[in-house]
Amino acid sequence: MDVVFIIVSIFLLLNIALGLFRIWRGPTVADRLLTTQLFGTTGMAVLLVLAGYLQELTLLNVAITFNVLAILLVIGLFQVWKTRKERSDDNI
């Protein structure tokens, strides 16, 4: 059973590593932001798997913390950038 947990968490971690490609390519800030949402979700999955593997239920609190706060970034981007939408954000 432990082997399954480990293989799944390694697979999920490799997913995060692949997601880095999108951060590099961009091209806009919104694309990169979506990657961080992927990271948040995948990170939660890793934490849940680790919680099963380590038999440590407090890890669920870490997962919830990550995911209730992930919304903050999206709204932050939406509200902060919409005023300057006309300007190109590609160069940054």
Binding site: I16, G19, I23, V29, R32, L59
Partner: peptide, 26 residues
């Protein structure tokens, strides 16, 4: 690029949180 740095830093935070979990510091 600055936006790469910012979002890579976010990913770094995630990796760090997972590392703390593995070290037992929940």
């Amino acid at each position: 690029r600055l936006s790469q740095s910012v979002f890579l830093f976010f990913a770094f935070g995630l990796a760090l949180a997972l590392a703390w979990v593995r070290l037992g510091a929940v």
